[in-house]
Simulated scan of single mutants.
Amino acid sequence: MLEVNGVAAPIPALATAVDYGTVPDWIAGVGSAVATVLLAVGLLREIRLRRIDGERAATERRAAEANQARLIGMVFRVRGSGTRVEFVIRNDSDEPLRDPAPLLFWADQGDALYIPRVEAEPAVVLLGPRQKAELIVSLGDGAAQPPHPSLVRCAVAFTDANGRRWLRTGAGRPLLVLDGDLQTLERSVRAAEQPSA
């Protein structure tokens, strides 16, 4: 009999019939639980390591993709009121580059960038390894004039030997350009003008 609040109550038969097992059963149960926890921890660690390896491989792949683009340089000199620029594109890589296209841009009213259409002479379709091209770049017909010649900046867009289109501004890092619309180009110019982290 079990006494609850001063009243005697019978002990249920189930309570007396429970088998708590033997010591080896308890050791096996605890061992199974610990093994399950260790397996889960090991699995989570492996997932994390594979994600880190994947991110590292992607970073190395992007760096390798930009190897040729890093070796493309340019020098420019703004003439007159900023409507004419002497432009030199250098290919210091061991691979040719295709369709080098010089760009002029400047900050327009406020923070907006103005990227006018330009005409370059002579037209260059292919620039071989270790070669340079000297161009005269002028604003296209109907393009707005820059507010001041010192505000004019230059960039060059080109296609590398693997068919990827890049944008390079001065000494800035090369940026992969996914398509040719003006907003994408403006975003790319802005991103290229940001200091490298």
Score class of each variant (00 low, 15 high):
E119I: 11
E134I: 07
G163A: 10
A107P: 04
G80F: 07
G80E: 11
L113E: 05
V118P: 02
T184L: 05
L126P: 00
D179W: 01
E121F: 09
A143V: 15
P146H: 07
R187G: 08
V75Y: 13
C154M: 07
E186P: 00
G110I: 01
E186Q: 08
A157Q: 15
D181F: 01
V189T: 00
L178C: 00
L71Y: 05
V118T: 13
W166M: 04
G142C: 11
H148S: 11
P100D: 09
R130L: 14
F76V: 00
N162R: 15
L151Y: 14
E121L: 10
A171T: 11
E119S: 02
A69H: 09
L127S: 06
D111K: 05
T169V: 15
L182K: 05
T83L: 12
L103F: 05
L175T: 04
R173E: 13
L176Q: 06
V189M: 03
L151V: 06
R164I: 13
L127Y: 08
M74Y: 01
G110E: 02
W166I: 01
A191P: 04
A143W: 03
A112F: 06
S81E: 10
R168G: 09
M74H: 13
F158T: 11
L71G: 14
A161Q: 13
S93R: 14
P174H: 07
P174D: 08
P146N: 10
W166Y: 03
R164H: 09
D99C: 03
P96N: 08
D160N: 10
A157H: 01
L178A: 08
R79Q: 10
V118D: 06
V125N: 13
F87V: 01
N162F: 09
R117S: 14
V88E: 12
L126E: 07
D160C: 10
V152N: 08
V152H: 05
A155E: 11
G172R: 01
Q183Y: 00
E186F: 00
R90S: 15
G82N: 13
S150M: 05
V118Q: 04
Q183I: 00
L135F: 06
D111F: 13
W166F: 02
L151E: 15
I89V: 15
S81N: 15
L178D: 09
R84N: 08
Q145K: 14
S138W: 07
V78I: 13
N91S: 05
D99P: 00
L151T: 14
R117A: 14
V78Y: 13
G172V: 03
S81G: 13
H148V: 02
D99N: 13
I72E: 02
A144C: 01
P102L: 09
G180L: 08
L104C: 02
A101L: 15
V85A: 04
G140V: 03
V85Q: 05
I115K: 01
R165Y: 11
V124Y: 02
P174V: 11
D94W: 05
D94Y: 09
A143L: 10
T184M: 07
L151K: 15
E134D: 13
A101W: 14
T169W: 02
S188V: 03
V156W: 07
P174W: 03
V88K: 15
R164S: 08
L185Y: 03
L103E: 00
D108P: 00
R79N: 07
E186R: 06
